[in-house]
Design a protein around this nucleic acid. Sequence first.
DNA 1: ATCATCCCCTGATGGC
DNA 2: TGCCATCAGGGGATGA
Length: 271
Amino acid sequence: MPELPEVETTRRGLEPLILNKIIENIAVRNARLRWPIPDTISAIKNQTITRIDRRGKYLILELNNDLHLIVHLGMSGSIGVLNKSTPLKKHDHFVIYFKDNAVLRFNDPRRFGCILLTDDNPLTHPLLASLGPEPLSHDFNAQWLKQKANSRMVAVKNFIMNAEVVVGVGNIYASEALFKAGIHPKRAASRISLRRYGFLVQAIKDVLHDAIRSGGTTLRDFSQSDGKPGYFQQQLNVYGRVNQACVMCSHPIKKTCIGQRSSYYCPKCQH
DNA sequence: ATCATCCCCTGATGGC
DNA sequence: TGCCATCAGGGGATGA
């Protein structure tokens, strides 16, 4: 389940492997992703990849003819850069063949991901246009959260998972960050002080930084056979630890549902 | 404007 | 061994 750290790991892993390479051919093996891969995708043939960016959980591949590929890994997507002779795997839906025999394969069992093409500024694409600040940027701060929360009664966990509030905070790291900040996941967004939003902002930055750092250790293996950036063996304090002892106070971790998503918290540490 | 609910999909898991 | 139900989750679409 790629969250921002996984996508950033993918971006960093891709850079040395495909930047400045020339696309010789492509293959759409199954166009039916979250949105169909457009027929216009063939316009990337014979172009060079000039830049690899990330915005939230979207990867943006810039080509030298001003086209941009917008890629989302969804829940189960991964990208592998391999040798042409590596056998195709089930769910390898999209393939890019480079002039130097390298092959990029987009694999996504659940097909919640997407591959789109735009000839415009990708940041104005409908999917990207209303995204909130990057969590690791200075634009993401306590004032911003407090102002966005205004009088909203939505649970803070849903609030920080809303991409218009801040991008890249998924279910796992939302639970972890709220634990670190000592905030109950069901607390109404408007009922959190500026001071406590400061703790939450720092917790989100810390959790994501840690995950990216541990992701970095797997970059070396990025082009091996499974093609996955690897999931982080990060120390999870609450996620998936229902009934286990809280690392801070030993009280059993609770599981609850917030907005159809499982959520974990310590009832003693989080208010 | 805000928010809850639904849905896309496959793989892993567990019960019978 | 097989079959079925259940769960997981990013995030857009929909309707209240």
